[in-house]
Design a binder for these strands. Structure first.
Length: 260
DNA sequence: AACTTGGGCAACCGCGTCATT
DNA sequence: TAATGACGCGGTTGCCCAAGT
């Protein structure tokens, strides 16, 4: 696929933005709205590539961006969402009004990874003790069972792109995306069909995420769907964790119902 | 006070997806 | 149907600054 060079273009500014550039970009977007990123820099009088402008606006200049530290509630939400969705930062950000995907990604990489590692530490020590005891019992055997090396399985769905149609299923809570009811595209229709066919095999998860939520959204009535969404999401996740036998299998289908 | 180190974050890069021609 | 262009996303880089020595 052809791809035009972007930031590598000669003569374009790179690196940190100046306050003047910020002002130009903000002024332009306030007057003309978002979009047309490719042609925006020229129109706005900026010597930046469109991509850079978009990033600056989305991650820094947007008026609805929340400044300040991540609250414990947000922190908890990020962890829970990440355990479900993996590194789909834009999806996670969609559930945190005013937070950007970049911010959450950075927060995860700098704070939460460490936090989770620290939490894991005592568990690992327990495991080590158990392992030691087991090894002593099996001293006679020279070959150590591979099972003792197994780590706890944590479901981390492979990071994948989210189709636009999914933003219907898991709506953003901020006001930056304005989905119009009559803008249902072919892919959205496909999504509806897909959801219908999956309902039966997902132990009800397809029903909630596909039918109920989706219907609310199509009817432009997504507030109800949004308010209970995470609570239900989390409850169902916990249910899955309780059901150890089918836990992995169910999680897979659960994740699929969210993501495919 | 000078230097080093490491954390935090803004910005860049490359690629996948989608819409248009 | 294939080619192209624009957009959006996640991974990575590199700069700045505070803390430590």
């Amino acid at each position: 696929m052809g791809r035009a060079p972007c930031c590598s273009k000669v003569g374009l500014h790179r690196g940190p933005w100046t306050s003047r550039e910020d002002a130009l970009l903000t002024k332009y977007i306030q007057a003309h709205g978002e979009g047309q990123w490719r042609s925006l820099p020229k129109s706005a009088g900026l010597l930046r590539c469109g991509k850079s402008c978009r990033l600056r606006w989305m991650n820094y200049l947007r008026p609805d961006i929340k400044r300040g530290n991540i609250t414990p509630e947000e922190d908890d939400l990020i962890i829970r969402m990440h355990s479900l969705l993996g590194n789909r930062w834009s999806l996670i950000a969609g559930r945190l009004p005013g937070r950007t995907d970049n911010e959450i990604k950075n927060y995860w990489n700098t704070h939460l990874i460490k936090k989770l590692k620290n939490q894991e530490q005592p568990e690992q020590e327990k495991k080590k003790k158990k392992k030691k005891q087991k090894n002593e019992k099996n001293k006679i055997k020279t070959k150590v069972s591979k099972d003792s090396e197994k780590k706890t399985l944590v479901y981390l769905p492979k990071a994948m792109r989210v189709k636009k149609s999914l933003s219907y299923v898991i709506p953003r809570t901020d006001n930056t995306i304005n989905m119009e009811p009559n803008s249902v595209t072919t892919s959205q229709k496909e999504e509806e069909q897909r959801v219908e066919t999956k309902e039966g095999e997902n132990d009800g998860f397809g029903l909630f995420f596909g039918e109920q939520c989706h219907e609310d959204l199509v009817n432009n009535n997504d507030m109800e769907c949004q308010t209970g969404f995470l609570e239900k999401l989390y409850e169902e996740y916990l249910q899955l964790l309780k059901n150890e036998e089918n836990h992995e299998k169910l999680l897979d289908s659960f994740a699929e119902s969210l993501l495919v």
